[in-house]
Design a protein around this nucleic acid. Structure first.
Length: 225
DNA sequence: AGTATCTTGCATAGTGGTCA
DNA sequence: TGACCACTATGCAAGATACT
């Protein structure tokens, strides 16, 4: 298997389509079935991925995002760099522990990969390329959106904004409400929600059902239903 | 009719929390 | 400890709608 994988790695560029690895499958239906399925992954199949393609760039800044549950996530704002025909400009840093582990500072030169050839990720830092102008990143004590003091429950790595009325959280809550996993409101996405909130037309998802006469129809029909 | 804008869906990984 | 689900993240293509 390893020999085959190495061979494919060499011939990767020769294919008329993009590949990110090879898949090995048990070639016996009885054995395959016996192995069963874990989650979405059948045990009888294994993927052997190639090393992701890398590019070097600079971390311009580290910004914070507040999720629906209040999770505060640091995101690296990168000097745009191209990997495999795609421009990478942002990459999640997950949490402060990840930042410490990588040893990332703002303005650092870093190596960026596309995990699974899709998701941008900072893979390593080049401390030897520092100029002295790099800034250490510290997590704030208060929510970047509402200013509430952030909490870090015991045993947890992630900082959270505990304020249920936090504007950023509220927005994400809205997104979730209208999303496929929620009410699945077709044609109503984050952009529209932003507009509705900015224009003061809604402050709670329930307000969506009282927009009559406001010259705004967020609901579209899906296949006539 | 042509252009602009917007939404959706997909791809995958890391992490956290819960449960057996 | 492993399984499993939820959450969060980015970028692109495709398709639909809105606007000029």
């Amino acid at each position: 298997i390893v020999a085959y994988w190495k061979d494919r790695t060499k011939k990767r560029e020769a294919f008329p389509f993009k590949i990110d690895g090879v898949v090995v499958s048990v070639n016996n239906n009885v054995a395959f079935k016996k192995l069963g399925v874990v989650g979405k992954s059948p045990r009888g199949i294994r993927a052997f991925k190639f090393s992701p393609k890398e590019a070097t760039t600079i971390i311009e800044d580290i910004k914070l995002q507040v999720g629906r549950t209040g999770a505060v996530t640091p995101v690296a704002v990168l000097k745009p760099v191209e990997i495999d025909g795609v421009t990478i400009s942002r990459a999640t840093l997950h949490n402060i522990d990840e930042i410490k582990k990588l040893g990332v500072k703002i303005k650092d030169t870093v190596s960026v990969v596309r995990a699974g050839d899709v998701i941008p990720a900072v893979s390593r830092v080049f401390p030897e390329l520092r100029t002295g102008r790099e800034r250490k990143f510290e997590m704030p004590e208060t929510c970047p959106s509402c200013g509430t003091k952030l909490i870090k429950p015991k045993g947890e790595v992630i900082l959270r904004c505990p304020n249920p009325k936090c504007f950023a959280r509220r927005k994400k809550y809205f997104y979730h409400f209208i999303s496929k996993g929620g009410f699945d409101i077709v044609g109503l996405g984050p952009r529209i929600i932003d507009r509705l909130i900015d224009e003061g037309l809604v402050s709670d998802p329930a307000d969506l059902f009282n927009l009559k006469g406001r010259n705004f129809t967020p609901f579209r029909k899906r296949n006539g239903n």
